[in-house]
């Protein structure tokens, strides 16, 4: 029982991280990243291979195998996802319209899956990775049963840390510029914002979150299975984001709790219906799609809507009398 509850706790906090990453890309900067799960997979894979011992003699095929300790491999996994995002963004983000970008990214997601499944010498093919060392298990003498509550708490702490950082970013001018680009990129460009550069920033930080979320997944389960990274999984993160409320971090947590924990993982504990293997899971996935559509139609702002950023939050003294009288800054005519 404790095992089940902490599994749910883990997935809730992990998807909180994943949703925050997608939120900065889609909810803030308006990038429709339909390949999001690909970045999660990259983070998971690299977190795994950085912590696994050298591949010789394990019967698996993978690169690196550096045997690095826990937080280091996770950080490198996040950076690997970020690096991959840099390449993808440089190719696609500069010139493609929303729908073309969505096409390319969803294709990329399918190709990554296909590639992973077939390229045995790099990704161990359809078998994926397994026996990934459990962090701290040896040092603290954790058993299979005590590892799960322990790691769920580790994930909770990491997610809160990442939430703190993300809320700083979203409150800063950079977050405001992201939202300006999301609302109207032509206006943002006309105001002197380099739309490509700003979107690249959103893409990179979001992918870091994706990579860390993926790394935590592989550390929790100890294995990397390509079928967990089908494009449909991206949709689950979108569902978390839209149900919770795009543009709001608290919403991401609420969404993770409602969608990932209650809708996806709780039914997984239901007994199978005899003679229909996997029926519950299929049915459940379809329900996620239906919930998202109903949500978009009846409450597009989500359970927790985007916060209104009031004037008082900018540190200005209240009352107009305190304001300087010359409203228009004299224009510098000799500017180049």
């Amino acid at each position: 029982m404790v095992y089940y509850i902490f599994t749910l706790v883990f997935f809730c906090f992990d998807y909180f991280i994943l949703a925050m990453g997608l939120n900065i890309q889609y909810g803030e900067a308006g990038i429709l990243n339909f390949a999001y799960i690909g970045f999660v997979a990259i983070g998971a894979y690299f977190t795994g291979v950085f912590s696994l011992p050298s591949s010789a003699g394990t019967g698996q095929h993978y690169i690196l195998g550096l045997g690095l300790p826990f937080p280091v491999n996770l950080l490198l996994g996040g950076l690997a996802a970020m690096f991959f995002a840099l390449i993808v963004a440089l190719i696609t983000l500069r010139r493609l319209r929303t729908d073309y970008l969505a096409i390319v990214l969803i294709s990329l997601s399918l190709v990554l899956y296909d590639f992973c499944n077939n390229f045995v010498s790099l990704f161990n093919g359809a078998d994926g990775l397994y026996n990934v060392p459990e962090p701290f298990a040896k040092a603290f003498g954790l058993t299979v049963n005590s590892f799960i509550p322990f790691f769920a708490c580790v994930t909770a702490v990491i997610s809160l840390l990442m939430w703190f950082v993300m809320s700083r970013v979203m409150r800063a001018p950079v977050g405001r510029t992201f939202r300006a680009i999301r609302d109207d990129e032509v206006v943002a460009a006309a105001l002197g914002k380099n739309v490509f550069l700003m979107r690249l920033k959103a893409m990179l930080i979001g992918s870091f979150y994706a990579g860390v979320g993926g790394g935590l997944l592989i550390q929790f389960g100890g294995s990397f299975n390509p079928t967990a990274w089908l494009p449909g999984e991206t949709f689950v993160v979108f569902a978390v984001l839209i149900v919770g409320g795009a543009g709001n971090n608290i919403g991401m947590f609420v969404g993770a709790l409602l969608v990932e924990t209650l809708l996806i993982h709780l039914p997984a504990f239901l007994p199978e219906i005899p003679g229909h293997p996997g029926l519950i899971e299929y049915f459940d996935n379809a329900v996620v799609g239906i919930v998202l559509m109903l949500m978009l139609w009846f409450r597009p702002q989500g359970v927790v809507p985007e916060r209104l950023r009031r004037a008082a939050s900018f540190g200005v003294r209240s009352g107009l009398g305190m304001l300087p009288q010359a409203p228009i800054e004299p224009a510098a005519l000799d500017r180049p």
Binding site: A172, P173, R179, A180, D183, D184, I205, R309
Partner: peptide, 27 residues
């Protein structure tokens, strides 16, 4: 073409060029 999701004040605050807070390093 107002930036609809932003407040009126935020619309104004987007405008200045080269804001220090648009860089992660400064952040």
């Amino acid at each position: 073409r107002e930036l609809g999701g932003l407040t009126v004040l935020e619309n104004m605050l987007v405008a200045p060029a080269d804001q220090a807070g648009e860089s992660f390093v400064n952040l």
